[in-house]
Write a protein that binds this DNA or RNA. Structure first.
Lengths: 225, 225
DNA sequence: GCGCCGTAGACTGTAGGCGAAAACCAATTC
DNA sequence: GAATTGGTTTTCGCCTACAGTCTACGGCGC
C-alpha cells in the first residue's frame, strides 16, 4: 500500500540521479579498455585519468580497484595500474570456463524456459539473421551478445549470470578480431539450441552450446597460425 | 648472473614489506565477516572501522569496494556498506555453480594430474581421515578445503581456480553450520575421486565430484526443515 | 492523539595535500 | 666503453577536510 498518491507506476521517471561518480568512471574506463583506446600493458596514471575525466583522483582509484578485482587491470603495488595483458594460455582457460558456464546455462534454460522465453529467443535469432544478411557486423555481434544473455536469463540463476557476464566480456575483449568473423554458421547453431530448449532436452542443449562455444576456440587457434 | 655478491639465496630474508594497507584491511574485514563477528545485514560505518583498525577511511573504502565486487557486502549509494544477506535462493544458485566448477576441476585434474599430484591428494586424504578419527572438526574442515584446492591446482586452470575460490569461500560462509556435520562419508568420496583421477577417467571423476558436492546441498535442504 | 513538517545529527561522496617509494637520467669511476 | 651511483622527477599511498544526502527525532498544526 505504498502508493498513497494514486499515481500509477512509471509515470514519474524517478528523477534521474547521477549516481556515484566512481561507477561512471568505472564504466568510462571499461569502455576505453574494451575499445582498445587504452591498450594492454599501458600504464594508467591516476592523475591523468582524473584530469581527463574532470574528476578527482579518488573516484578514479575506486574504479581502478574494481577493474582490478574483475581482471581488467593489474594493480602493481607502489607502481600503479596497468591494463591487463592476456596471455594465450589465459585466453584459452577463459574459453574453457565460458564453455562450461554457457553450457550449464543452456541446460538450465532447457529445464526452466517457458513458451514466452522461447519466443523471445526466436525473435532475437531472426533479428540476428537479418543483421548477417545485411552485412551489419556490429549489429550481428550485439545481437549475438543479447541472445546469449537471454539464454542466461532464462536459466534463472543470478549467480551463474553474474560470473558468465564477467567471463563473457573478457572473452569478447580478447577475441574481438575473431568474433567478428563468425557469421551465418553461428546463427544456425542458435536455431538448433532453441529447438533443444523448446524440447526441454537438457542433454542436447548442453551439447549444442558446448559445441557452439568450442567453435570459437577453434577459430582462434586456426587464426593464430 | 644476478648474484654478483656471492651471497647464497635465502640467507637474506627479503625484508618483509607490509604490503598495501588496503589489502590488509581487506583481509581483516573478510575474516571478520566469515567468522560472523560482523553479521549479515549489519551496517558497516567507514569511520568506525577505520578507527577500530587504526587507519584512515581511504583504505577502508577501497577494501569495501573490493568486498562489494566479490559479493561479501552490498554498497548502497549514499547509505554505506552492509554485510550481504544471503537468501536461500542465492545459496542454492551458488551451490549449483560450485558443483559445476568443482566437477570441471575434477575432470581436468583427471586429464592432467601426474603421479606426484595424486600422491599429494592421498596424503591430504589420509590427514583428513586422521582428523575425523580424532574428532578434530576444525582440522577436518581445513583439510577438506585444502583437498579441494589441491584438486583445483592439479586442474591447471588459473581462471577456473580464481572463480571457484570465490564461490567456494562464499558457500562455506553460508553453510558453516552444515559443513561441519559431514564427516566420514566425505572422505570416502574423496578416496573414490582420487581413484578416478589416477585412472585418468574424466567421466567418472566428474560424476563423483558432482555427486560429492550435491550431497552438501542435500544436507542443507534437509536441515532447513 | 495523530500525522506532517522542519531541523539537527551522522554518514557518505568528493576534493586536495603531504610524505614516500619507484623510475629515470646523467655524471662518475673502473 | 660499461657499470654504478647519486640526484631528480614522477607517481602512488594515505590522511585530512569539506560539501551533499539520508535518517531520526522533536515540535507544530489538525
Amino acid at each position: 500500500m505504498l502508493p498513497t498518491t494514486g499515481l500509477p507506476y512509471g509515470t514519474v521517471p524517478r528523477l534521474e540521479r547521477p549516481g556515484p561518480l566512481r561507477d561512471r568512471v568505472y564504466g568510462a574506463l571499461l569502455e576505453l579498455i574494451t575499445t582498445r583506446a587504452l591498450q594492454p600493458g599501458q600504464h594508467l596514471v591516476e592523475s591523468e585519468l582524473a584530469g581527463h575525466l574532470g574528476v578527482s583522483r579518488q573516484p578514479v582509484r575506486e574504479a581502478l580497484q574494481r577493474l582490478n578485482t574483475e581482471g581488467w587491470v593489474d594493480l602493481r603495488p607502489a607502481q600503479g595500474a596497468f591494463v591487463h595483458e592476456p596471455t594465450d594460455e589465459e585466453a584459452d582457460q577463459l574459453l574453457t570456463v565460458r564453455t562450461l558456464l554457457e553450457a550449464e546455462a543452456a541446460r538450465l534454460a532447457a529445464a526452466n524456459a517457458g513458451s514466452a522465453g522461447i519466443a523471445a529467443l526466436e525473435d532475437l535469432c531472426a533479428e540476428g539473421e537479418r543483421a548477417v544478411d545485411a552485412d551489419d557486423v556490429d549489429g550481428a555481434v550485439a545481437l549475438n551478445a543479447r541472445f546469449h544473455a537471454k539464454v542466461m536469463e532464462l536459466a534463472g540463476n543470478a549467480v551463474l549470470a553474474e560470473l558468465a557476464g564477467q567471463v563473457d566480456r573478457r572473452v569478447r575483449w580478447y577475441y574481438t578480431p575473431v568474433a567478428r568473423q563468425r557469421g551465418r554458421q553461428s546463427w544456425i547453431e542458435h536455431r538448433e539450441l532453441i529447438a533443444a530448449i523448446a524440447d526441454r532436452d537438457e542433454q542436447r542443449a548442453t551439447a549444442i552450446m558446448r559445441q557452439h562455444t568450442e567453435h570459437t576456440r577453434k577459430m582462434y587457434h586456426d587464426r593464430e597460425k
